[in-house]
Design a protein around this nucleic acid. Structure first.
Lengths: 214, 214
DNA sequence: TAGTTTGGAGAATATCATTCTCGGGAGTGG
DNA sequence: CCACTCCCGAGAATGATATTCTCCAAACTA
């Protein structure tokens, strides 16, 4: 979220003048669209906005929009990636408070789960929503969007392996992939709705850590 | 998949005549739409069809369609539920070949995983595709669609628990929910695309069964 | 047979995403 | 200072779909 419309107009113009190159202005415009979309999502508490809404809110034009993005899906992808990067950073920060690899991983799992849940106070809002949509429509691009999170989990798992804490036959990358997928989708409403009590982060961790067989 | 258009016309009319009540005919019409949609999905190998296409193929009318279904999403839901029921049956049948509860569960997990994968020879076709869409748009209704599968897994897990094979603190229902979610979404392309080798059913089972911690 | 229900055909509408067309303003070279 | 050009806003046009509506005939009921 950049400063956006709160800044005094002269300042904006000054910035505009100083950062003159086309590329930079393009970047600024992209960001404006992203911010606009963010705002709308937060306000409506839902991820289904129209391109028009975004354009209006952004104070830019439809034409601009389609100059910056190949289509709506690219905006979604960008939003998703932004969200993932933020989440990764937050999770990484949280893991730094632990020193045991297992504990680090536990923190990561539980936090990821909480961040993916249909949020009570829509902060980084329901981002799994379009996550799932994009998962189907643009799986390839999703790979790169996920990559920072994927990297983080792989790293944590490697650390665990080096500390002899990982099952012998387990490959960090492959486990990371399975774990992330599981956590993010267990966080989805449906599954919870079948049960009297929603599934807790603790439970998810137990599931990932120890599986189910005695 | 009912007999549908392959049946000789006279037979259909005979049936039509004998099963006269409005309710029954409505049911038949619903089925026609479902079959039509199925066919299209199989043919195109993709799940994005238009209502028009379905209507044309069904030889019924648009009006009829909207009399039977509240909207496209209800058709999707119905298709999804049909698919889930079929899958459940298939899985249940497969588990009956095993006698150890663990083995039964293993078979169930692996088969579910395979059935949810972006199919090579689109039989019960890519049903996770709209599964994920609906998961977001109509989570409540999805509950009932899932229920047969959920029931099956719960049952298998209860059996495992009774044989002392389940972790002590694990509740069959809650585990069933987490497992299903995990398996079905690990089967989604994205995760696999990050890795050199796709994830195998065996790996998924290991993950669910034993978790990751040594 | 007259009335009622059912359902077909397909036109009309609504909602979006995406593309297109125009015109004005800002910078640039002469 | 004057064209000239490029960037971009405004918003109309297009296209694809879902959904609704209107008209009408066939089937069924009493």
């Amino acid at each position: 979220m950049t400063a956006g419309t709160e800044e005094p107009a002269w300042k904006q113009r000054a910035v505009e003048r100083s950062l003159r190159t086309a590329k930079e202005r393009a970047g600024q415009r992209v960001q404006k669209f992203l911010d606009a979309a963010q705002e709308i999502i937060v306000e409506k508490g839902s991820t289904d906005f129209t391109v028009q809404e975004v354009v209006e809110r952004s104070k830019l034009s439809l034409r601009s929009f389609y100059l910056q993005f190949d289509g709506k899906h690219e905006l979604l992808l960008a939003l998703f990636e932004e969200a993932v990067v933020r989440m990764s950073a937050q999770i990484r920060a949280a893991t730094d408070n632990e020193d045991q690899p297992v504990e680090q991983l536990k923190v990561a799992v539980e936090l990821l789960y909480e961040l993916c849940q249909p949020d009570p106070v829509a902060r980084r809002p329901l981002f799994t929503e379009f996550g799932t949509q994009l998962l189907i429509s643009h799986p390839i691009e999703m790979r790169t969007a996920y990559s920072s999170l994927f990297g983080l989990f792989t790293e944590l798992l490697e650390r665990l392996r080096d500390a002899q804490g990982l099952r012998d036959d387990a490959d960090p990358q492959r486990i990371a992939s399975m774990m992330m997928q599981s956590i993010m989708f267990i966080a989805q409403p449906t599954s919870a709705d079948m049960l009297p009590e929603p599934i807790s982060a603790e439970e998810v961790w137990e599931f990932c850590a120890h599986g189910i067989v005695r």
